[in-house]
Write a protein that binds this DNA or RNA. Structure first.
Lengths: 294, 294
DNA sequence: CCAATAGTGTCTGTTAGACAGTATGAA
DNA sequence: TTCATACTGTCTAACAGACACTATTGG
């Protein structure tokens, strides 16, 4: 069977489909070199956590010097969308770990999922251009290579701030750069807005928070991560742990970590009194419903 | 500023991006001409309801005579993906109603949302071709025009059956055609499989069931629709209505319908004893979470 | 000692779930 | 009378949420 010519095809051969990735992490406030804090709280206290997003500064004809989502093209005829997204994610962030092949894009420390395709005719001034937006949640420990770079033209992390007055404000970690929606290239501001709602929904309805936490974590750390990703979540410390651990509907969602001796493993990293460490149970299947009896 | 030539563009001009739509409805078992039932249940009893999907039979070079999802191309330079999906939806189903412009693709009787983009190199034998899959939920009352058509080369409704043994079986309403995953064109079987999980999740976590119901409905009808879309939902009739209506977390999710005299409006359509009619409260905001205190 | 975090005891009102029982009116 | 569907009454266990209280240990 002969190869079809370009004209005969219903859909013309492409350079590949563009893919853009919203790479989120929940970053822990870092201490200064002499191990003191930037504020007046004591060393034995939880550092603040903040949702951050990776942006790159463009160089080229369109939107030169503007900040934009990292992305690229699928290698046509060889790559699927997911494969291209994984490749871009690794290229942009110098990820130290390789991404394994588990169901649903999971690996410890990395979550990757397609969010939505965008294709309004006016989104690219060069002409109608689609893009497929992915959302990645990456453990901050895996982004060490990105921070080491430090070149302004490279990828950089921005703190995400949303409020009623300012719909979207992005602030670089050193505080030198502040970006608003209009400062971003293409329609990336609205893609980011969609992505923020996407991750907020994910973190509340799945066990995805696992990706943003160390392998073993305390209940307070989990609450911090949830609050960082979902601004509408207001943590109430007192009963959270009990209700999370003791309720039948969430039975064995979290597992107590035991030490070598088989006794409950605790940490004193953030508090004087030792706190119990937990892991997420991979076998836990989250089901949510607005209707009773599900 | 001069117009860029094709070669200068980063992304070549396209015929447009392909869009495929999974059009679902929950169909009520229809009675025969003499108003008797096909089974032995009494006339005053609930008709069965079944999830159905619109397919078209292809004609052309590729996958000729195979059944496939309805779809088409965006009109490049003028149409967004959503606009193209709306147009295709209207063309394929002879929708009697126009689609209004409310937030999130809602209108009474029609829900439309983008699900996912597909672009594995091998999904189209003619060459690498992406597609953006949409999911539509349409009230069966609006699909009268489709059923009136009756031409085999036109759109036709298929009952969706899923079981452990047979992952996907589609059966035409008259029972004449039975399709399995391998009978469908392209990768449409796997798109449909994704769409089934998508709508199941939607119906359990949002008030989308509204789209598939008449304006005013009984609690039993609502349960039927939920069960038709979400096979894992096992209705327990006794307390469902009370828990749905009386719980604080679902306060004013459903509203009692009143008649002209201001008294509770009831129907005797399906039962001897009159049943209360309800509508969905548009103002109800569904929030779901696996964590307590949200 | 104080500060900060971890965790328990106890109480109240709400919800889930089971099950028995009553209500309505067509066939 | 029987049947299908629509409800209500009542009980128990589980859960949400508030609040007071104790526990641990670095500074």
């Amino acid at each position: 069977m002969r190869r079809q010519t370009e004209q005969e095809r219903e859909y013309p051969s492409l350079r590949g489909l563009p893919v853009d990735i919203c790479i989120f992490t929940v970053a822990t406030e870092r201490r200064t070199a002499d191990n003191t804090r930037t504020d007046r709280r004591s060393l034995k206290s939880y550092p603040r956590r903040c949702l951050e997003l990776v942006l790159i500064q463009r160089s080229g004809d369109t939107f030169n010097d503007h900040w934009a989502l990292p992305g690229g093209f699928t290698n046509v005829e060889t790559e699927s969308l997911d494969q291209a997204a994984i490749r871009e994610l690794q290229e942009e962030t110098n990820l130290t770990a390789a991404i394994g092949g588990e169901t649903e894009g999971w690996m410890d420390g990395i979550y990757l999922e397609q969010m939505k395709a965008y294709y309004t005719p006016w989104r690219d001034p060069r002409g109608p251009t689609p893009t497929v937006a992915y959302v990645a949640l990456v453990n901050e420990a895996l982004l060490a290579g990105l921070r080491a770079g430090g070149d302004a033209k490279q990828a950089q992390l921005f703190r995400v701030r949303v409020s009623d007055a300012q719909p979207l404000v992005l602030e670089s970690e050193d505080g030198a750069i502040t970006l608003h929606a209009a400062d971003l290239a293409f329609d990336h501001a609205s893609i980011i807005a969609d992505a923020l709602r996407f991750v907020e929904n994910k973190v509340m309805t799945t066990t995805i928070a696992r990706t943003l936490l160390p392998k073993e974590f305390t209940i307070a750390q989990l609450q911090q991560v949830i609050a960082a990703v979902a601004p509408s979540y207001r943590p109430t410390t007192t009963n959270f742990a009990r209700d999370l651990l003791k309720t039948k509907t969430r039975d064995r969602m979290l597992l107590e970590v035991l030490d070598e001796a088989g006794r409950p493993k605790k940490t004193r990293q953030y508090s004087a009194r030792p706190a119990q460490l937990y892991t997420f149970n991979r076998a836990f299947d989250a089901r949510v419903s607005i209707y009773p009896r599900f």
